[in-house]
Write a protein that binds this DNA or RNA. Structure first.
Lengths: 192, 192
DNA sequence: GAGCGGAGAGAACGTTCGTTCTCTCTCGGT
DNA sequence: ACCGAGAGAGAACGAACGTTCTCTCCGCTC
C-alpha cells in the first residue's frame, strides 16, 4: 500500500468519525480500526492527534470550497450565483451525515485550548466571507451585502444542525433574495 | 454555608469555566477549587458531571432569556423591539467573556454523545425562535419573518464568536431592518 | 467530658486516552 | 537457505479523568 494512500484513508476516516461523534470522543484506537491501519503506521504518518485534526480541517476546507464553487458556477447570473450559496446549503443539510459546520464544531470543542484550531476556523470563515463578498461585488451590490449574506448562511448552518431540519436553508434563501434585491436597488414587495 | 448557596456557586463557577475553556477541558477538581467546595459536597449536590452540565444549561437559558427580554421591553414600538434583539447581541458580543453561544458550543461538544445536551440545546433554540416569532406577530409581520430574523441572530453569534469582533451584530441589525420593513410592506430603498 | 454525626481534605480506584515499546512474522537480496 | 529491515498487532506506560473512600477534626448532645 502506498504511503499517501494510508494518509488519505486516515484523514478520511478521521473526518467521518470526528464529524459524527466529536473530536474528543474518538480515540486513536478507534480511528486506527476505522482506517484499517496499524497504530504504528498512524504515528508514522502523523506525529500526534492534533496534527490529524489539522489535516481533517484542511480536508474539510478544500471539500467545502470546491463543492460550493461547483454549485455556484452552475448559476447563470450574478444574482443566481449569490442564491446558489443557499442551494448548496440545502443540499448539504439534507445529507445524513450533516451535523453542522465542522469548523464551528471544532472551534467549540478545541478553540479555547488549541490556537491552531481556532486560527484555522477563523481563516475558513474569513475565506468564505471573502468569497461571498466577491460574488456580491460581481453582482454590483454595495459592500455591506457580503457580510449580511455570510451571516445568513452561518445562521442557517447552526439552525439546521441543532433543529435537525433543512428548513433553515430555504428560509435563509428567501431572506437573501430580499437583501440582494434591496441592495441592488430593485423594487421589493413584501409578501403578506 | 447554606446548601443552595453551594449549589449556586458550583453552577456559577461551572458556567464560567465551561464557557471559557470548554466542558470537557474542565475537570471536577478544577471546578471544586473554583467553587471553593469540597469534592464530597460537590457530589452531594450533584450526582455526576453530566447533571452539573445540565444545571449550567438551565442557568444559561434563564440568564439569556431574561437579559434579552429586559432589553426588548425597553423598546417603544414592535419594530424597535425586533431590532432590540440585535442590540442585545451587540452588547453581549462586547463582553470579554463572550465565546459564542453556549448552547451551540455544548451541542458541538456533547450533542453527539449526550441526548440530554442535544435536546436541551434544541429546546433553547426553539424557545428563542418562538420568542422572535411572537415579536414578529406583534409587529403584524407575515409568519416567515420570525425564522428569518432568528437565522440572522444565530449567524451573528457564530460569526462574532469565531471572528472575535462585534461587527456581526450591527451587520445583522441592518439586514434585519431591511427584512422587517419589506415584510411589513414598507418601501425600502437600497443604499448604494 | 465522652461519644457521635457530619463536613473538609485529599488519597485512592478504575477507566480511558495519547503515545511508545516489544515481539513476531514476512519478504527480498545474496 | 539465511539474514536483516520493516511492518503489523497489541501490550505497556504515564497522565488525566470521574467517582468513591478514608481519615481527621469540629461541634453538638447526654
Amino acid at each position: 500500500m502506498n504511503i499517501s494512500e494510508a494518509r488519505t484513508r486516515i484523514v478520511a476516516s478521521a473526518d467521518e468519525l470526528y464529524n459524527a461523534r466529536g473530536i474528543q470522543a474518538v480515540g486513536m484506537d478507534e480511528l486506527r480500526a476505522a482506517a484499517g491501519v496499524s497504530l504504528k503506521k498512524l504515528y508514522q504518518e502523523f506525529p500526534s492527534k492534533g496534527s490529524i485534526v489539522m489535516a481533517v480541517l484542511e480536508r474539510r476546507h478544500r471539500s467545502w470550497a470546491e463543492g460550493l464553487d461547483a454549485t455556484v458556477r452552475q448559476a447563470p447570473t450574478p444574482r443566481a450565483r449569490l442564491l446558489a450559496i443557499f442551494d448548496y446549503l440545502a443540499q448539504w443539510f439534507g445529507e445524513d451525515s450533516f451535523r453542522g459546520c465542522g469548523f464551528v464544531n471544532s472551534f467549540a470543542e478545541l478553540g479555547a485550548v488549541s490556537p491552531d484550531v481556532a486560527d484555522y476556523a477563523r481563516q475558513h470563515k474569513e475565506s468564505f466571507q471573502e468569497y461571498v463578498g466577491k460574488l456580491s461585488e460581481d453582482a454590483g451590490a454595495p459592500p455591506y451585502l457580503g457580510p449580511q449574506l455570510s451571516i445568513l448562511a452561518e445562521g442557517a448552518q447552526t439552525t439546521a444542525a441543532i433543529a435537525g431540519t433543512v428548513d433553515a436553508a430555504v428560509q435563509a434563501r428567501q431572506a437573501a433574495e430580499v437583501l440582494i434585491d434591496v441592495a441592488l436597488g430593485h423594487e421589493v414587495r413584501g409578501a403578506a
